[in-house]
């Protein structure tokens, strides 16, 4: 099955029209749990981007050797391997970053978004297309995490990236895990609304 989309379309799709968090509603647990600040969101996003790209490449490369009945165990193994590799390399090379990210990285094995991209895309498409798709989805996830982190950090702690911008804490509620659902829900509504407006305008033009 060949892919009909061009590479820029593949890239943009992950960022906007099929954004993992706001559109596909995948990997919501980390989105809610780890998005209390911009920084943690960004770090988890980076880690997911790496794992997604490496896993997609591996699966796209070996797609002919994977027995269809054991796809999912194979995907899990591949993801777990890359997560472990990134965990070890970060701990060795960037100890300062690892001290903050360490706890998130091991969680990535269970992220639905990565398995889902392997299942619906990488196991059917060519290596370059899978790479572009993985980069798009990875950045889309990172974008979602940063946006949610921005809202929650600003409203919950009154800071952005640790810098005090408001000088007070408007709503402490936003730091609590349950507030993550509210923010994600509001963001989804916001993105859907934008998309609707955009469609309407396109329809009016033509």
């Amino acid at each position: 099955m060949a892919n009909t989309l061009t590479k820029p379309q593949l890239l943009g799709r992950g960022l906007l029209s099929q954004n993992p968090i706001f559109k596909l509603a995948l990997s919501m647990c980390p989105a809610v749990g780890m998005s209390t600040t911009v920084m943690t969101g960004l770090m988890l996003g980076c880690a997911v981007l790496f794992v997604q790209v490496f896993s997609s490449l591996t699966i796209a490369l070996f797609k002919r050797q994977i027995h269809p009945r054991i796809r999912i165990p194979t995907y899990t193994l591949v993801i777990a391997t890359w997560v472990t590799v990134i965990d070890l390399v970060l701990a060795a090379v960037f100890p300062a970053a690892y001290a903050q990210m360490g706890i998130f990285i091991k969680l990535i094995v269970a992220f639905a978004i990565i398995t889902m991209r392997l299942e619906t895309f990488a196991c059917k498409e060519s290596v370059p297309d899978s790479f572009v798709d993985a980069v798009g989805m990875g950045f889309g996830f990172m974008f979602g995490m940063v946006v949610i982190g921005f809202v929650r950090e600003l409203l919950g702690s009154g800071t952005i990236l640790g810098y005090d911008v408001l000088g007070f804490k408007p709503f402490m509620f936003f730091i609590l895990p349950c507030a993550g659902f509210f923010v994600v829900g509001l963001m989804m509504a916001f993105f859907n609304w934008i998309e609707q407006k955009y469609r309407e305008r396109m329809a009016n033009k033509s």
Partner: peptide, 28 residues
């Protein structure tokens, strides 16, 4: 076929993780 493929996958995964560990554990 399934058994062989799964075994090979596990061995490969183990080899990759093991090699990374050997290369990085001292620095860590």
């Amino acid at each position: 076929s399934i058994v062989v493929r799964l075994t090979v996958t596990c061995l490969l995964a183990g080899a990759v993780m093991g090699a990374t560990f050997v290369l990085t554990h001292e620095a860590k």
